[in-house]
Design a binder for these strands. Structure first.
Lengths: 243, 243
DNA sequence: AGACGTATGTGCGTTAACGCACGTATAACA
DNA sequence: TGTTATACGTGCGTTAACGCACATACGTCT
């Protein structure tokens, strides 16, 4: 494992704004924080936090996105949430729990900015706009997790796959997603074959096309017409809270 | 509808401590807050908050407990979390969202204390132990919701019923639970008949007994042996965060 | 006691998803 | 250019849960 992420060269004031929480900060707050922001690259499959593990940094993804996963004793896994350029990974640090019982794993490689826990906490405890933003984002994340709970219970694999593809598409800056059916099955908590069958149907309907670990989004509109309400609920709540 | 809850007579400093968040507050904080705490009784089925509705108060249950529910467009429902004497209903008020896209409904009648949103916020913004406690509780709630998401995906109706009965038993101060199979089916997001079948099996094994809206917990140990890991994960995380 | 409303029991056909086994295709590398 | 690892396709029997229809039992209120 070793170091998480990889440091890249500095001179990045612009890219920092690629994260929508950072870009929503007032100028004075941003000025205070920017010296603590350190760019890193995340590569696919990298583990950002282990379940119950120590957390040194919070991460603000820009072009990367990170999956929050829970692993059962028997090894089966399921995703509870997904964090991209609209969010932050490591909320347990300001929520006061220091760690969480779930794992965070890179689901789409790319850039992020990290900040030492202490620097983040100092700003959080000022009680200003930074705290406000972090807490509102956390509420949006709670909605996402809740909706996942309900969606897992009431909707089919095919609908959940649509939702997952749309969410992932929102976070990736491209129509080309790099992921296997096996990988997706671990996110959705279903069999690999189940993903294959659902993906076939979506492909037949012309929504996506895929070969060996590459999925292309062909018709986002049709995906939107096919997905369950859960996708929009989460999105609406997110814009209500973070505009 | 009308007023939510019913005011009862004052002189309640002791009962207030029935809520474990309030009882964990340092003396000075509690002194500031206690004049704002107002006792109310909740009765079964009462709606505390409507989805997206205005929230005037936060509620600290003592002998009551409240279910956080999501209702789909087609009317099907599922529970995402359960709040009793260990928690607080209305986290959106300090998280900054003002409302949430889910409903809160009384699942076990009894007492609670409520506090006006403004009084709560004033204390929250001091940034002291009250804020700490609320945020740590919120993190515990996130764990509960996450675990529900995963549990909904990976475990059987029978296991989920065990988990739900144990959680409810923890919050009710009695072995006698007042609820129909129909009611439980709306919480678990399954058919009424599915609950009946699972309940029959638990009854045959001597864990519970039930008649027409009354369920008695007979053998908690056996329920614990039968439940999925999710129950204990949530409980452990709760005690880690709130001791 | 009778009648009604509500809660639970049961049966039956249907379906989505599972687990397993193995076949086929693609990409990468020797 | 052939081999190998990996990703995807397919078939088949099994199961959990569904939807619906209706039977039975319990309580309560007249």
């Amino acid at each position: 494992m070793g170091q998480k992420g990889k440091r890249i060269s500095a001179g990045h004031s612009d890219e920092v704004r690629g994260n929508r929480l950072l870009s929503a900060l007032p100028a004075d707050v941003f000025e205070r924080l920017k010296i603590h922001l350190e760019p890193i690259t995340f590569s696919l499959g990298e583990v950002v936090y282990e379940s119950g593990g120590h957390m040194d940094y919070v991460y603000f993804p820009t072009t990367s996105h990170i999956s929050l996963l829970y692993t059962m004793i028997d090894g089966s896994t399921a995703e509870m949430g997904l964090v991209g350029q609209e969010g932050v990974v490591g909320i347990a640090l300001f929520m006061g729990g220091e760690t969480t019982p779930n794992r965070a794993m890179v689901q789409g490689g790319g850039l992020a900015f990290r900040m030492k826990a202490k620097a983040m906490l100092d700003e959080f405890q000022r009680g200003g706009e930074f705290q406000h933003l972090m807490l509102r984002y956390t509420q949006a994340l709670i909605t996402q997790i809740s909706q996942t709970a309900v969606c897992n219970r009431l909707h089919s694999v095919e609908q959940r796959l649509c939702r997952w593809l749309l969410m992932t598409h929102d976070m990736a800056q491209t129509d080309q997603l790099q992921m296997t059916h096996e990988f997706i099955s671990n996110m959705l908590g279903v069999r690999r074959e189940g993903v294959t069958m659902a993906a076939q149907r979506l492909q037949q309907m012309g929504m996506i096309s895929y070969v060996r670990g590459h999925i292309q989004i062909l018709d986002r509109q049709q995906l939107l017409a096919h997905v369950c309400e859960c996708y929009q609920v989460v999105k609406d709540e997110h814009s209500r809270l973070l505009g």
